[in-house]
Nucleic acid binder design. Structure first.
Lengths: 340, 340
DNA sequence: CGGCGTAGTGCAATCGATTGCTAACCGCGG
DNA sequence: CCGCGGTTAGCAATCGATTGCACTACGCCG
């Protein structure tokens, strides 16, 4: 059906090998310049499309990268994915994207199916803290981690600086006069949640503020989960005047919990989110949040992957840290007189 | 490096062909049951992963489907993509996803690169009204259209019933007492925008209401674009008390335009969106909108694609239409006395 | 005029799985 | 004892591109 190298070769009275070389920019210099243009023209006219499966079989490189995402419908990820796609495709690579739903079994399964497709490498945005696959996987293929650095192993990674982001947020709240600041943290199994909670504690201590009993955790990065947790936190600590949530969904859940306790945001309670997902400027109240450069995280991780794939000499371990910034909107306000 | 059929065969003193048959459920019955289990066990222990590129080369089927999306960061799409992925992967297929940014050139390019990867079919969610590629493409590969039926050609498609959705919205507004209802339509090149505008006109006429001069169009599905358009519409037609926007972004832009003209939503102007993207319940005011079943659109289109790929006999042309529903929230209200 | 270097092509093996055909072998009936 | 049907398994070709090696022809130098 579709034209092959052999078809072109026959039409031109050449050998397939010559046609192959003429069409490959890296080897075209081995072929007479006139022949190259003849071949190019013929390929064009026969609308030749190289069969990447055949090429991949021969070279055992698929020009394909597995991209493992916990949940694409979390608005944090589409931006990242766009960054990955744009950068990879510019280099002739195709991302193979899969969701895991934050389920370790699903993850094992999709990783296996991507290996069957012979991906050349993996970009992992799943942020479980422990990760049995990782050791084995990274010994066989290039792996780039997104939003996570592992405790045990050194791997190439791209992430936004959580410590810095959290400090921006806490400084902002302290600057507004808040002293009793709570934290609604992410799931305990999540390395991101863990890191942000630690950064929170560290920063609070640096300000000489109490931290220990205010840290709280939920079991999913969801609005519902935060609703419960924040409610408990607020009931247990009525003196809290501000809460830093570990991401935007948790911030929204926190605001809803506050409302259910008749505490308005920002008048009675300031709330800061994290990530600055799309539309967070439009919710009520517009969310003050830490913006992470989503597209850049994606494109940087793709760039890192490409350098691992293309550099002949072993690339030195690179861990890219991007800097988040604080976006002040309507969900934070100066602390008012403590409630009666 | 990785184990191959031959490796297993040698270890077991068998021929690769036998191993292949033993491992393939469709041909396992040709092999002695005992041999099958021996092979299975060996494959397991050597952690054999079949090379899908070799299989694909031989069978010229990649078990891969190209999924072409205009813009993944449009929150409408992640839900659809999830539906596609879940359904395809359950059947052993892998989606290859690409963005086009609503650019026809980019689209041509990504389609070419997907064809080089020998995708078995295409799911197209790009909704340009005219589409030169489509004719050629659909003659060579199975194609399923999302959110679009073409004027010229009959192709398998999955979409939500725009006419029905628009009617729900208009009926709602009319029921609230509105008579002068405007429409902020999508880009003219978009088939979705076109269809919704037509449905709007039709429904308004059915209600005996004026329509002609209120229809308006913008050049992108963006908040900014709607801001300008809605402003012009409102300035030109100050009597308008309600606006139906062709999607949620346009609705948000419309609300902002109204604000800039000192018209509050919903008190002075009711606004209805379309799609019910995530977080539309949280914006200010919570958006009344037509909900389309995003996940189902994705999974139905994947199902349709699978039936095209797997059924031996030609599948009869199927055009799936899903039914949207109206979600009433805070952006619409009963019409008040006409403004002074 | 002989020999050597080089540019340009052709040859053929290779990647790993699949599959139509063939071959070996068994049991059984005539 | 022969032959036949049926079950298992091996053989070998095939998919299409890539690439190390061999070969030809030509130009150039000594």
């Amino acid at each position: 059906m579709a034209a092959t190298l052999k078809d072109i070769a026959e039409k031109l009275g050449l050998h397939p090998a010559t046609v192959s070389r003429a069409l490959n920019p890296r080897t075209a210099h081995l072929v007479n310049a006139g022949t190259v243009t003849r071949v190019r023209r013929a390929a064009e006219s026969m609308s030749y499309v190289p069969n990447s499966m055949a090429a991949g079989l021969r070279t055992s490189r698929s020009h394909t990268v597995g991209v493992v995402i916990p949940d694409l419908t979390n608005p944090l990820f589409p931006g990242i994915v766009r960054g990955i796609q744009d950068t990879l495709s510019r280099a002739g690579y195709t991302p193979l994207m899969v969701n895991t739903d934050n389920d370790a079994d699903v993850e094992a399964q999709v990783v296996a199916s991507l290996r069957a497709r012979r991906v050349d490498g993996f970009i992992l945005a799943t942020a479980r803290r422990e990760h049995p696959l990782l050791v084995e996987l990274s010994s066989k293929l290039p792996v780039v981690l997104i939003n996570r650095v592992t405790d045990s192993m050194q791997l190439p990674s791209v992430s936004a600086d959580n410590q810095h982001g959290i400090r921006l947020a806490v400084d902002h709240l302290v600057g507004l006069g808040h002293r009793e600041i709570g934290h609604v943290g992410g799931p305990v199994w999540s390395s991101t949640g863990h890191e942000r909670a630690q950064s929170f504690a560290r920063t609070m201590r640096a300000h000489g503020l109490s931290t220990a009993r205010r840290i709280n955790a939920v079991d999913a990065w969801s609005i519902e989960s935060a609703r419960d947790a924040a409610r408990r936190l607020l009931v247990a600590n009525p003196g809290i005047t501000a809460i830093l949530a570990a991401n935007d969904q948790l911030a929204i859940g926190t605001i809803e919990a506050a409302r259910s306790l008749k505490r308005r945001c920002p008048q009675d309670l300031s709330v800061v989110g994290y990530n600055d997902m799309p539309f967070m400027d439009l919710v009520d109240p517009p969310l003050t949040t830490v913006r992470v450069p989503q597209y850049d995280i994606g494109s940087e991780s793709a760039r890192l992957m490409l350098s691992l794939l293309l550099e002949q000499e072993a690339t030195p371990l690179k861990q890219v840290r991007l800097t988040p910034e604080l976006v002040v909107r309507g969900s934070t306000a100066r602390r008012r007189a403590p409630r009666a």
